[in-house]
Amino acid sequence: MIMRAFCVAAVAIGLATSAARAEFFGSPDFTGTGPGFIQGGTSPIPRETIMYPTNLAPGTIVVNTAERRLYLVLGDGEALRYGIGVGRDGFRWGGVHRISAKKEWPAWTPPRQMIARRPDLPRHMVGGIENPLGARALYLGSTLYRIHGSNEPETIGQAVSSGCFRMTNEDVTDLYDRVSVGATVIVKN
C-alpha cells in the first residue's frame, strides 16, 4: 500500500513537473515560429528596435562585426538590432552583397576549405534541429557565407564561426520573414 501510494505520488509529481515545464517553456515547436522553439534558445543579446539614422533603403542589412550586431534598416530613422556570432580571428571579412537565396531548415555541405581544417566534419547534413545552419539561412551572393540560425545560442556575441553570421533560430526566423531575396547586405569589418 505504501509503495503504491509512492508510485502514484511520483507519477503525479512527474505530470505536474511536465505540465509546469510545458507551461514555462511552451510546447516543442519544430516550425520555428512559437515560444517553445527547440534548440534555438533565446539570444543573450535581445533583439530591439533602435534609432538608426541612415540614408540606406529600408530592408538593407548592415552587419557590424566589431559590435557583433546585425541591423535591419526599417526606415524613418529606425532599425532592428540583433545579436550575432561572427567569424573568429582570420575569418572576418567585409563587403557588399545581396541575398541570393533564402532557405528554411537548410541542408549543410561544408566547403572543402572547412573539411581540410576539420576532417571530422560530415560531408553533408540534411536540414533539421541538429544541423549547424539552424532554422533558416540567407545566402550572401556567390560567397560561401550565410546569415543563419544556430542551435548554440551561447555563441551569439562571440567570434567563433568560419565567416558566417550566426543568430538564434528565433532571431533568424524573424529576420527571414522581414527580408527578400535581392536585399543588400553591407558587412563592416
Rank of each mutant, 00 (worst) to 15 (best):
S142L: 02
R88P: 03
A57G: 04
G36D: 08
R112L: 11
G83L: 04
N55K: 11
N131P: 06
L70I: 00
H97L: 11
D29I: 05
T109K: 13
V96M: 12
A137M: 05
P44Y: 12
P53G: 08
G90C: 04
Y82E: 10
P106C: 09
T65D: 07
V62S: 08
R69E: 06
G127W: 01
M114G: 02
P132S: 00
L72G: 08
P122T: 04
I61Q: 07
F30M: 14
M125W: 02
V73N: 05
I38Y: 14
G85A: 15
A135N: 09
G36W: 01
R98I: 09
R81N: 06
R68V: 00
N131C: 13
Q113A: 09
I50H: 06
G59A: 07
R92H: 01
Y71W: 03
S27A: 14
P58E: 07
E104I: 11
P106W: 05
Y139G: 05
F91G: 02
I115M: 12
Y82V: 03
L133P: 03
K103Y: 01
G127H: 02
P35G: 10
Q39W: 11
V63H: 01
E78Y: 13
K102W: 05
E130N: 12
A135D: 01
F37V: 14
L80E: 12
D89W: 06
A101T: 04
I38P: 01
G95I: 09
R136P: 01
G141P: 08
T49V: 15
H124P: 05
G41K: 11
S27R: 15
N55T: 13
W93E: 01
W93P: 00
P46F: 07
G94E: 15
P119G: 07
